[in-house]
Design a protein around this nucleic acid. Structure first.
Ligand code: MG
Length: 353
DNA sequence: CTATGTAAACAAC
DNA sequence: GTTGTTTACATAG
């Protein structure tokens, strides 16, 4: 996968979220325990995080969302040497091109590869197909020339290839012309397990554009994730400005979130701010400094049509101090129209030739 | 730096 | 388990 800084050209790349804890003198456990302590007096089951106990959260990491541990990778396969194809997408292009209708299902692509490239055939024969098949799927998704052709009543779609779909990615560079908050210097390190035990993680999936799998992938979510993912958010907005695509996000809270006491649907930005102010105050009262928590860029709410999109929109990112089932705190979310956000924030960017 | 290979999380089915 | 999207990280040049 491309690094975000590679995918999108930033004149000034946003700071990468530090891997080191920002507050070094406190461990994440310390911070968690502080939070827990402050919440204990309110919470019915203080150790309980949506049914999981903190001790169970073995994969908590600090300062970053979903940060994986470094992993020893296999050496890159030299495809050119092994099979004469420059890279995976060339293989897929060939496979599709060789088909009568110029389209194949995923499984047919696998088959073509196995039938025509001994290297992959032998991998499959030795039960080692997981990796290259993953790479095939990765490449299908990644490269714009590959697009899906839906079939009525069939789960697996057909994959087609149109080189004209690779284009205009770099018509102009967007320059950021106003400050957007990055990670605050002294903010609390993001307390973010990368597991399902993370309450905010329950929101994250809805932010992906999976629901758009039955549509052409023109409609995309604008926000890839919440809180510390400023890079992604900024990049998406920039792309929106560049491509003038129709944006709609796919952000409905999960049922679990909707039914939880931790969220309240608000209908305007005033209500939203009221909730956030109250939450901040509550946390501050329990000796929790959220004043330097990262801020999301948008604070304006345009009440427009767009489906039933909803998004958690921390004006100040108190999700770093998320306390689930806190009887005094309810995290507000509201319906937003991406186009409105883009329009609102368009002035933050200019396109340079 | 860019391009791309590898691994995997996650969701939907 | 399969299909698909995405993120993270590694490596080659
Ligand atoms: Mg694609």
């Amino acid at each position: 996968m491309r690094g975000r800084s590679q995918t999108w050209s930033f004149t000034k790349p946003p700071k990468r979220i530090a891997k080191e804890p920002i507050v070094k003198e406190k461990s994440v456990e310390d911070i968690f325990n502080e939070l827990l302590e402050s919440a204990n007096e309110f919470m019915e089951e203080p150790e309980d995080l949506f049914g999981f106990r903190y001790e169970d959260l073995s994969d908590i990491e600090e300062g970053s969302v979903n940060q994986r541990s470094p992993v020893e990778h296999k050496k890159k396969t030299d495809l050119a040497k092994i099979c004469g194809f420059q890279s995976y997408h060339h293989i897929i292009e060939k496979a599709i091109h060789c088909s009568p209708d110029k389209m194949l299902t995923l499984n047919q692509i696998y088959s073509w590869i196995e039938e025509n490239i001994p290297y992959f055939r032998s991998l499959t024969e030795s039960k080692n197909s997981k990796g290259w098949k993953n790479s095939v799927r990765h490449n299908l998704s990644l490269h714009k020339q590959f697009y899906r052709v839906l079939r009525e009543g069939q789960r697996a779609c057909l994959w087609a290839c149109d080189m004209n779909r690779i284009r205009n990615e770099k018509v102009g560079k967007l320059r950021k012309i106003s400050h957007q908050p990055q990670q605050a210097e002294h903010s609390i390190p993001t307390f973010r397990p990368r597991s399902k035990t993370d309450p905010t993680a329950m929101i994250r999936p809805t932010i992906k554009n999976l629901r758009n799998q039955n549509e052409e992938n023109i409609v995309k979510p604008i926000f890839n994730s919440l809180s510390s993912r400023f890079e992604a958010i900024e990049a998406k907005k920039k792309q929106a400005c560049l491509e003038n695509v129709h944006w709609a996000h796919d952000l409905s809270l999960t049922e679990q979130c909707r039914n939880s006491n931790s969220y309240t649907n608000v209908s305007n930005v005033d209500q939203f701010n009221t909730f956030n102010d109250f939450n901040r105050q509550t946390l501050t009262d329990s000796n929790h400094d959220v004043s330097n928590a990262p801020q999301m860029a948008f604070t304006t709410f345009q009440n427009t049509s767009l489906n039933n999109s909803s998004i958690m929109t921390p004006v100040q990112d108190i999700s770093t101090s998320f306390i689930p089932n806190h009887p005094s705190i309810s995290y507000p979310f509201m319906t937003l129209d991406d186009q409105a956000i883009i329009e609102h924030e368009k002035h933050l960017y200019e396109v340079t030739p």
